[in-house]
Design a protein around this nucleic acid. Structure first.
Lengths: 135, 135
DNA sequence: ATTCATGCAAACAATTTGCACGATC
DNA sequence: GATCGTGCAAATTGTTTGCATGAAT
């Protein structure tokens, strides 16, 4: 139960926090840390991301295609995923203010977390698609 | 471009449609079909689920832990995932009526789909936990 | 000192792919 | 009869695990 303060755990957390809005995957965190800490292990990164997520320090985000991504849960927010370029963005929607309460009362669940991903095409990719008009 | 009407594709679709509310994984669909069609290949099930999803005929649902699950997208709805027993349930929330429009206008994305999972503890597991009061 | 965490490599799970053959248009 | 889809096995990807060693309490 007693968790320790390891250098690696602190680094993993700091890395995700530092990659503001990048929603890095475990592998991206690993590659980043590898530069400063060549001895670090991929397994350690996975393990620490899991621990930090269980502690509620990090959010884990499941995106169609590819690996899970991590997030600092400053405030409850939603995600946009561009199916063309693959980028993930944060967005905070007013209409989500009551969803948690509604789900809770309607279903009788004790809800701990909510994860929303909108799948679509980002403005930049809409323009690109319009320019390369052959498709 | 011209897609064909294969026996296997029809069976995969019918199976997911038949498993009302069960949100089967690719492997569950495969196991089910294996009985009637012993020759069917796991790869075929994966490929057809992907095609049907791309055609908008099936929804693909990413759940923390374990494989993707499939769904018939009758109406836009949300999901509840019990972290204790692992069950996935559908729910339709009023407050989600406007989220798509809000996200669209706020972010400039062209949004094709929306996927929400609430993580929590279902009523049955809340009771079980209360009974086995040692934790 | 105890025991939690690390690093490594091997194991695992879910999914994808290459290829020859078969089925559908 | 052209080519899309299938079945099989092998390959990939993402993640987890066992174990001996090292570090934090």
């Amino acid at each position: 139960m007693a968790q320790r303060n390891t250098v690696q755990r602190a680094l993993v957390l700091k890395t995700v926090q530092g990659m503001q809005g990048a929603h890095p995957t475990a592998d991206e965190v690993f590659s980043y840390l590898k530069v400063a800490q060549p001895a670090i292990s991929r397994a350690t990164v996975y393990r620490n991301l899991a621990v930090l997520h269980e502690n509620g320090v990090l959010n884990r985000l499941k995106v169609p295609q590819g690996a899970d991504r991590y997030d600092t849960p400053a405030t409850t927010h939603q995600h946009l995923h561009c199916i063309i370029c693959g980028k993930v963005e944060d967005i905070t929607l007013e209409s989500f203010k009551n969803t948690l309460e509604e789900a809770q009362s309607k279903a009788g669940y004790r809800i701990l977390n909510q994860e929303t991903v909108f799948e679509g095409v980002c403005p930049a990719c809409q323009i690109k698609k319009r320019e390369g008009e052959k498709e």
